[in-house]
């Protein structure tokens, strides 16, 4: 997508949502939904439209872990690190995932395929360990099941 096109998309989102009370989070969600991330170039336009300072907009983006300012890998993998999953073996799973992907949290594999993120609870606590791959939640994840999941990804175009 060219930068002009990006500007148009951002302008369209702002046009649509700017009048909501407390519009900033809905705006950021929509931009990230459209573009996959919130490009730093978007900040001045958002600030102008919502009558905020750039620092305020930037402060909000950086406060929330959900928002990203650079594109993620082709897939985003979230591993639940919270207690209920710990109780059902997530620490072993976590170590396995990191070793298999060869990266730590916050990083993307060298081939750009997978971005690994920690998450604190996915609400699937009765059937952990839980991981979320893009939009799909997976329950009772084991190292073996994870390897199968990864194998599926690699055959995708």
């Amino acid at each position: 997508m060219g930068s002009e096109q990006i500007d148009l998309r951002i302008a369209a989102v702002l046009e649509q949502l700017r009048d909501l009370p407390g519009a900033l989070l809905p705006v950021l969600h929509e931009i990230q939904h459209e573009l996959g991330h919130i490009p730093p170039e978007a900040v001045p336009a958002i600030a102008r439209a919502l009558n905020l300072s750039r620092a305020e907009v930037h402060g909000v983006i950086s406060f929330y872990t959900h928002f990203r300012t650079t594109p993620a890998g082709e897939h985003v993998l979230q591993v639940c690190r919270a207690e209920a999953c710990q109780a059902s073996g997530s620490r072993t799973l976590e170590a396995h995932v990191k070793a298999r992907l060869g990266i730590d949290y916050g990083a993307t594999t060298a081939d750009g395929k997978v971005t690994l993120e920690p998450v604190y609870c996915l609400g699937n606590c009765a059937c952990g360990p839980s991981v979320q791959l893009d939009d799909t939640l997976h329950a009772r994840m084991t190292p073996q099941a994870f390897d199968a999941l990864l194998a599926d990804l690699e055959v995708k175009p």
Partner: peptide, 25 residues
């Protein structure tokens, strides 16, 4: 309905209100 953005502290009621108003939690 509004979406949060991955901050546990936004479950605390006043942080939640800040977030709804479009600020850091």
């Amino acid at each position: 309905a509004r979406l949060g953005a991955g901050a546990y502290i936004c479950g605390e009621e006043t942080a939640l209100l800040e977030s709804l108003e479009g600020r850091r939690g």
